[in-house]
Design a binder for these strands. Structure first.
Length: 292
DNA sequence: CCGCAAATAT
DNA sequence: TATATTTGCG
């Protein structure tokens, strides 16, 4: 019996990938506006993946050419010595659209936090550790706030009652605070002892090419695009609401959380699981990197 | 700069 | 409407 490497994803040993290692995850945080402001070429006329511009209404972007990472981090003028923190003030001052924390992005976030430790997990450090272009400290800070709340909520919950539904933060968190359509029957399973079973590999079937052509992705052969279909909560759209797998912490009514049916989406069916003409579908394609 | 609370946008 | 993200304050 040798200490064989255990495929335990639950291992807290989150290896902190070096900036170079986790480069592939770069989310095109550069929005068209931002790019324009920089006078750099705009990859695609549409919103950049990962970021939903205020122009969500016009989601019919044909192709997703997410190439040419505009390194707004390295100015042409080159002020090597000067401007340590300044860098590109323009970039910082630009109004960026809502940042969409994709599971992958969140994953990296969690990884960073795990490695830094709860004590050192401060926005700035996390941000630096994530090494995601365009990601601001504010973004991380706010996300961290929610993340902590989420953890706290979960802790208190797991303390009183039957076995926790899942490995907790690991799974749920990875799921990004709850926004992944992927629901598998195993997810709601009580793990015995340390038997924390993971289940994040089931999702990765060839699910794309739904609408237009995303051939552009060809460049990043390793990157898979997953179309997350979200439907705006319509008062009448009952029957199939969000399937949030995590507690709501609304400060309002407190109740009113409806659990939609356990959307048992087969590993083959995606997106079109529910259809509705009047529903607005937000296509969020997130490139899957080498992580997870 | 960090954390929290409120405001705003989607 | 609720949720997510942003913004302001201590």
């Amino acid at each position: 019996m040798i200490e064989e490497e255990e495929p335990n994803w639950l291992t807290r040993r989150e290896e902190l990938p070096r900036p170079e290692e986790l480069m592939p995850l770069y989310q095109s945080l550069i929005t068209p506006d931002l790019a324009l402001a920089f006078d750099i070429l705009t990859p695609n006329p549409s919103a950049a993946p990962g970021l939903n511009a205020h122009d969500t209404a016009a989601n019919h972007h044909p192709a997703q050419a997410l190439l040419g990472v505009p390194d707004f981090e390295s100015p042409n003028h080159s002020s090597p010595a000067g401007s340590g923190s300044g860098g590109n003030e323009l970039a910082r001052t630009l109004k960026r659209p809502r940042l969409v924390w994709t599971p992958q992005l969140h994953k990296r976030f969690v990884d960073a936090v795990a490695h830094l430790g709860i004590k050192n997990a401060v926005p700035k450090t996390i941000m630096q550790l994530m090494s995601v272009d365009g990601l601001t400290r504010e973004n991380v800070a706010s996300h961290l706030q929610k993340y902590r709340l989420y953890l706290k909520r979960m802790q208190g919950l797991s303390s009183a009652g039957p076995p926790c539904p899942m490995s907790a933060a690991d799974a749920a968190t990875e799921q990004l605070f709850a926004s992944t359509p992927i629901h598998n029957p195993f997810l709601a399973r009580g793990a015995s002892g340390t038997g924390q079973e993971s289940f994040m590999q089931f999702m990765a079937p060839p699910l794309l090419q739904h609408h237009q052509h995303i051939a552009a992705a060809a460049s990043l052969a390793q990157q898979r695009f997953y179309h997350q279909t979200q439907h705006f909560g319509s008062p009448m759209a009952t029957g199939v609401g969000y399937d949030y797998g995590f507690p709501t912490m609304t400060g309002g009514s407190g109740l009113g959380m409806r659990h939609s049916s356990p959307l048992a989406v087969p590993p083959n069916s995606y997106g079109e699981g529910i259809d509705s003409g009047s529903r607005r579908r937000v296509l969020t394609l997130f490139p899957s990197g080498s992580e997870d």
